[in-house]
Simulated scan of single mutants.
Amino acid sequence: MLNSLAYLGFHDIKAIERMTFHEYLLRFEAYQLAQIKRNEELAYQAWLNQQVQATTGSTKHPRPKFRTFKQFFDTDKQIATVRKIFESSEVSENRQVSQEKIFVQRMQEFKRLKKQGKIIPWQKRTQAEKGGF
């Protein structure tokens, strides 16, 4: 939720809650790709600046430290890294499966504890047990 508010331009909590997990991942991937593009622009400006200043070799025979912009900032490599993370269906499926397993385990434990009488329904709790609610 915090990422949606901070980075994805959301201002409405209800809009965030309506968003599916898949939509969130897609939006966050797009945000990261936009950041790469912004970083590329900044890096290109820095590259142009360093082209004027940065050299290697002797003072009599200076050579530019980076001969091409791609040596300085490889945009394709940056994009491939982000896409690899988000497009790996195995990662998404494993995350979803593990979340489902955790939920099922917690529900089973909840039902077991409720059956044993260790969980008191909210309506039957005293004011002190409710913690002031």
Rank of each mutant, 00 (worst) to 15 (best):
L2H: 10
L2T: 09
N3E: 15
A6L: 14
Y7H: 11
Y7P: 04
Y7G: 02
F10G: 04
F10R: 01
H11P: 07
K14Q: 13
K14W: 12
K14L: 14
I16Y: 13
E17I: 12
E17Y: 10
T20K: 04
T20F: 05
H22W: 01
Y24L: 09
L25W: 01
L25I: 07
L26K: 15
R27P: 02
F28M: 15
E29S: 07
E29H: 09
Q32I: 02
Q32R: 09
L33A: 12
E40V: 08
E40T: 14
L42C: 10
A46H: 11
L48R: 10
L48G: 06
N49L: 07
N49M: 10
Q51I: 03
Q51T: 04
V52M: 02
Q53I: 15
Q53H: 13
T55H: 11
T56N: 08
T56V: 12
G57V: 07
S58K: 07
T59K: 10
H61V: 07
H61Y: 11
P62I: 12
R63H: 04
P64V: 11
R67M: 07
T68F: 07
T68L: 07
Q71M: 03
Q71E: 04
F72L: 08
F72Y: 15
D74L: 08
T75D: 05
D76P: 04
Q78W: 08
Q78T: 06
Q78C: 12
I79G: 03
I79F: 04
A80H: 13
T81N: 13
T81Y: 09
T81R: 10
V82H: 06
K84I: 04
F86G: 02
S88W: 05
S89P: 04
V91N: 08
R95W: 07
R95D: 06
V97A: 13
V97I: 15
R106F: 00
M107V: 01
F110I: 01
R112I: 05
K114C: 05
K115W: 03
Q116M: 06
K118F: 02
I119M: 01
I119Q: 00
Q123P: 04
K124W: 08
R125E: 02
A128E: 15
K130D: 11
